[in-house]
Simulated scan of single mutants.
Amino acid sequence: MRLKVSHRTEYSYDEPIRYGLQRLRLWPASGPAQTMLTWALHIEGAREEVRFLDQFGNDTRLLSIDGDPHTISVVAEGEIETNDTAGVSGPHRGFAPLWLFEHQTPLTAPGTAIRDLAASVGDGGDLQRLHGLMALIQQRIAYVTGTTDSRTTAEEALVKGTGVCQDHSHVFAASARLLGFPARYVSGYLMMNDRVDQVATHAWAEAYVSDLGWVGFDAANGMSPDERYVRVAVGRDYREAMPIAGILIGHAQERLAVHITVEQ
């Protein structure tokens, strides 16, 4: 499937910015499940200082901001050829060793609720257990926007029983690690069946399975990624794979607007 993606992020400020830095992870790579055909970044109000691959193999750009911009816009867009691999994205790559993904982070640190969830996964083969875990998470966490934010931990989301794809992915990663699987968070895009316009990127999780490599599980939708998914960045949690992060020096008040389209 050939997908066309446009992702516009715009920051508006009520006064000039003294200085700022932004880190972008917005450049998808080709792999077993996708081939990048065209991709471009358009940046206004900031300048690109350096480009590198981070420890997880994500294409990463650092932008600097100074002077008097009141608006900063970043547009990532292009076309990706995708194919359905039943969620399998292949062998482990990147500078970070596989064992690093066995370790929890502050956002995925398990408490009683996650430990009980992992313990409730039944017996069976690796894929059977992971699909069972995904089904349990979909049952326990209703998809409700506005009830969690980027600081919400996996344990908090599971106890609350509501959240978004970020929370489903954190709970899956935390639980899979308790079950003995290296696990990671994936940031990307999903072509919706009922709309083109979106206001946020998508997220899912992957677990490492012997003889298969990394296998994806989207607990928010109860399925493994198919040809409607575009993967962009990975990390142990949201903070390590988020599309844009940054710091500002000064007292300017910030307003954020995000507009995403994903279509054939």
Rank of each mutant, 00 (worst) to 15 (best):
R2N: 14
T9K: 03
Y11R: 04
S12I: 02
P16N: 12
I17T: 06
L24N: 09
P28N: 07
S30M: 00
G31N: 05
G31H: 02
A33W: 03
T35K: 07
M36E: 12
T38G: 11
W39C: 07
A40Y: 04
H42W: 04
E44W: 01
V50I: 08
R51F: 08
F52M: 06
F52C: 11
Q55F: 09
S64C: 07
D66F: 08
S73Y: 00
V74A: 13
V74F: 04
V75F: 03
G78V: 00
G78C: 00
T82V: 01
N83C: 04
D84H: 09
T85C: 02
G87Q: 08
V88Y: 07
S89M: 06
P91I: 06
H92S: 08
R93K: 08
G94S: 07
G94Y: 07
F95S: 14
P97E: 03
T112M: 03
I114H: 14
I114G: 13
D116W: 00
A119G: 09
V121I: 08
G122P: 12
D123M: 00
D123H: 01
G124E: 06
R129P: 11
L130T: 15
L133H: 15
L133Y: 13
A135S: 06
L136N: 13
I137Y: 03
Q138S: 12
Q138A: 11
Q139E: 14
I141G: 15
T147Q: 08
T148P: 04
T152V: 05
E155Q: 08
E156S: 06
E156M: 01
L158W: 01
V159Y: 08
V159F: 06
T162H: 04
G163N: 12
Q166P: 11
H168N: 10
H168G: 13
H170G: 14
V171M: 03
A174W: 00
S175Y: 02
A176E: 10
A176Q: 10
A176C: 03
L178A: 15
A183M: 05
Y185W: 08
V186C: 12
V186A: 15
S187P: 07
Y189W: 04
N193R: 11
V196D: 14
H202M: 02
H202G: 09
H202K: 07
E206P: 01
S210K: 09
S210V: 12
D211E: 10
G213E: 02
F217C: 08
F217M: 05
D218T: 12
A220T: 13
N221V: 01
M223N: 13
S224F: 00
R228M: 00
R228H: 06
Y229M: 03
R231T: 15
R236M: 05
D237T: 05
E240F: 01
P243S: 11
A245G: 15
G250M: 10
A252Y: 06
Q253F: 02
R255L: 00
R255I: 01
V258C: 07
I260A: 14
T261S: 14
V262G: 12
V262W: 04
